[in-house]
Amino acid sequence: MQDLYSGKCFLTLKLLKKYGCARTKTSAIIDNLSRDKIETIVETLQKTFFACATDGSNDVNTQLYPIVVRYYNKEIDQIMTALLSMPSCNESCTGENIFNLLNREFVKYNIPWGNCVSFGCDNASVMTGKHKGVDKFVADQNENIYISGCPCHLVHIAAQKTAQKIPIKFEDLLVDIYYYLDKSYKRNLELKNGQLMCEIKTHKILKHVSTRWLSLGKCLERLLEQWDALKMFFEQEYEIEKKKKGKTKIS
């Protein structure tokens, strides 16, 4: 049985090596497959409830507004998330113009706003404004629709404002600690002894690079993990420096 399976795999690979598909053919295949997929999604949205979300791109030349939908697929008994379309806004991106963009897609596919039970977006005034935001025009189409601003966006803004009140800059602290320990066997050995005393894993202090902003979270996690050992280490360093200065004044 295994030999038969291996033989089939060999023949399949042999056929695939002879298969040629350049840009034109590949584009045509993707286009036809995507049309079939869109037709299936649209048929479902016309008959069932769904949630819709969009957010504008930051491209200077054109503003894209991908329309993402989330719905229940009865056939496979799963919640599905799909990209319905990605229209571009060639006018000024006001709340009304963005809504008209979305509405044109709904009309084109004959999708009723009444089936849309939730609309998700970021918390910019152009999206959530009470009088001229996209949310207002969406609510005019379906008064029972649930408008959901992005909670991650709100948490980020809150964290950003809070961080501004902290008297130290974490980026500078991480860089200073790393380079203070870097290439010093004696300091790293003393820190390791502190880690063992505090029963902390003997992990190295990570290097934060400002151009790689994703490293900030990992570096902060490592700093907090090693906080007790670092605190003990720098307290000892402070006492040593204090004694040195005292001896210098006496002499």
Rank of each mutant, 00 (worst) to 15 (best):
L4T: 14
L11N: 12
L13R: 14
C21M: 12
C21R: 08
A22L: 11
T26C: 11
T26Q: 12
S27Q: 14
A28N: 12
I29Q: 06
I30P: 02
D31S: 15
S34G: 06
D36A: 14
I41D: 00
T44N: 10
T44V: 09
A51I: 02
C52M: 08
T54E: 01
G56C: 07
T62C: 13
T62R: 14
L64C: 11
I67F: 02
Q78G: 05
A82T: 06
S85A: 12
M86V: 14
S88P: 02
N90M: 13
S92I: 09
C93D: 04
N100R: 08
L101Q: 01
R104C: 13
V107S: 11
Y109V: 02
N110E: 15
P112R: 02
W113E: 02
C121R: 01
C121N: 04
C121Y: 02
N123E: 06
S125W: 07
M127Q: 01
G129P: 01
D135A: 15
K136R: 14
K136E: 07
A139L: 10
E143S: 12
I145A: 01
S148L: 14
G149Q: 03
H153M: 04
V155E: 10
I157M: 11
K161A: 15
I166T: 07
P167V: 05
I168H: 10
I168W: 15
E171M: 07
D172C: 07
D176T: 09
L189R: 13
L189V: 12
N193T: 11
L196M: 10
C198I: 07
E199K: 12
H203S: 08
V209E: 05
T211R: 04
L220P: 01
R222G: 01
A229D: 00
M232R: 06
K243N: 11
T248D: 13
I250E: 15
